[in-house]
C-alpha cells in the first residue's frame, strides 16, 4: 500500500456529521444494553422524579375541573326591594328565567320566606313580636351549567342592576378560598418541578461522571490519536439522551397507571356529588412534553458533566 497519500476522499461535513451521530446513537444504546439493569435503575429514578410533579400537575388540573363544575351549582340570591309587590316579583322571576346564562329560578315571596323561617328556625314567636314581616322577597337564581367565573360574575352584575333588586349576592366565598388554595398548590407544583428537574440533572450528571471515570484510559487514548473534544463528548451526550428518553417515557407510564388506579374510586366520588366529571389524564401533548423535558434534562446534565470532566483528562 502507498503509505503517504495526500488528500484522502471524505464525505461532506454534514454527511460526516450525520453519519457519526447515527453511529453514536446506536453505539450508546448498545453500551446501555450491555448493562441494562443499572441503566434501568437510573431511568427509573429519573422517571419517578419526573412523574411526581407531572402527577401533581394532573391532580391540580382535575381539582380545578371539579371546582369549575361546582361553580354552576352556586346560587345567586336576589333580595328584592320592600316596595316591590308580590305580583311584580313573580313577573320579574319569569323575565329573568328567559335570560341567557340563567338556569333555574325560584321566587320566594315575603310570606313564603316568613313561613319557611317560622318552620325551620324555631324563632317563630320572636317574629310575632314584630309589627311587620322583616324578611325580604328573594329570587334564587341558579346559573346555567358550564360557565366560566367571568360569565357568572357578569350575570351577577346584570341582575344587580335591575331596579327591583336591592342586593344580588353570590355565595362563593368558599369557592374563592378553594381557588386560592389551588393557586398555591399549582405554584408549589411548579417549585417542586424545578427542584426535581435539578435532581434529574444531578442524577444524570453523576451517572455520566462514573461512566467517564471508568473510561478515563479510553478518553486519553482518543485524545492521543487526535480525537476532538466534541467527538469524545458525543457518546456521553447520547447516553444522557437515552436516560432522559427512558425516564420521560417511564414518567408518562407511571402517571397513566396512577390515573387508571384512581379512576374507579373517583368515579364513585363524582357520582356522590352528582358530577358527570371523570378523571382526565395527561393529554398526548403533555405526555410528549414530559418526554421532551426528560430528554432535555438528560442531554444538558450529560453536557455539563462531560464538558467539566473532559478538560481535566489529558494524555500522560
Amino acid at each position: 500500500m502507498a503509505l503517504v497519500e495526500a488528500g484522502m476522499e471524505r464525505p461532506s461535513l454534514p454527511a460526516r456529521w450525520a453519519q457519526d451521530h447515527l453511529r453514536v446513537l446506536f453505539f450508546s444504546l448498545g453500551k446501555i444494553g450491555r448493562a441494562p439493569i443499572a441503566a434501568a435503575f437510573t431511568a427509573l429514578v429519573i422517571g419517578i422524579a419526573l412523574a411526581l410533579p407531572a402527577g401533581l400537575y394532573v391532580a391540580t388540573q382535575n381539582l380545578a375541573d371539579v371546582a369549575y363544575g361546582w361553580q354552576s351549582s352556586l346560587q345567586i340570591s336576589l333580595y328584592l326591594k320592600d316596595g316591590v309587590s308580590a305580583e311584580r316579583g313573580a313577573a320579574l322571576a319569569r323575565e329573568l328565567d328567559a335570560l341567557p346564562g340563567v338556569g333555574e329560578i325560584d321566587y320566594i315571596s315575603r310570606e313564603r320566606s316568613l313561613k319557611e323561617f317560622r318552620e325551620k328556625s324555631g324563632f317563630g314567636e320572636a317574629l310575632d313580636l314584630l309589627d311587620d314581616n322583616p324578611l325580604p322577597a328573594v329570587i334564587a337564581v341558579t346559573p346555567a351549567p358550564q360557565q366560566t367565573q367571568d360569565q357568572i360574575e357578569a350575570l351577577v352584575a346584570k341582575l344587580a342592576a335591575k331596579p327591583e333588586v336591592e342586593l344580588a349576592k353570590l355565595d362563593r366565598e368558599w369557592l374563592d378560598r378553594l381557588y386560592a388554595m389551588l393557586a398555591i398548590v399549582e405554584r408549589s407544583v411548579g417549585i417542586l418541578a424545578v427542584l426535581l428537574g435539578v435532581a434529574v440533572l444531578v442524577i444524570v450528571g453523576n451517572t455520566i461522571r462514573l461512566d467517564i471515570e471508568s473510561r478515563r484510559e479510553e478518553i486519553e487514548v482518543m485524545k492521543l490519536i487526535g480525537a476532538p473534544d466534541r467527538f469524545i463528548r458525543r457518546p456521553f451526550l447520547y447516553t444522557g439522551f437515552w436516560y432522559g428518553l427512558g425516564g420521560g417515557l417511564l414518567a408518562w407510564v407511571l402517571v397513566s397507571v396512577a390515573i387508571a388506579l384512581l379512576t374507579a374510586p373517583s368515579a364513585e366520588l363524582a357520582a356522590d356529588y352528582d358530577s358527570p366529571l371523570g378523571l382526565t389524564g395527561l393529554s398526548p401533548a403533555a405526555g410528549l412534553g414530559l418526554v421532551a423535558a426528560g430528554i432535555v434534562l438528560g442531554w444538558v446534565g450529560a453536557l455539563v458533566t462531560v464538558s467539566r470532566r473532559l478538560a481535566s483528562i489529558q494524555p500522560k
Binding site: R10, P11, Q19, R23, E220, V221, M222, I225, G226, A227
Partner: peptide
C-alpha cells in the same frame, strides 16, 4: 494504548472514524 473492549478492527478504524470516512 489500545482500547481493550473493542475488536482489533475497531481499534485500527478509530482514527478514520474520528475523521469521518465512509
Amino acid at each position: 494504548n489500545l482500547l481493550y473492549d473493542r475488536t482489533v478492527f475497531d481499534n485500527v478504524a478509530l482514527p478514520l472514524v474520528i475523521r469521518g470516512y465512509t
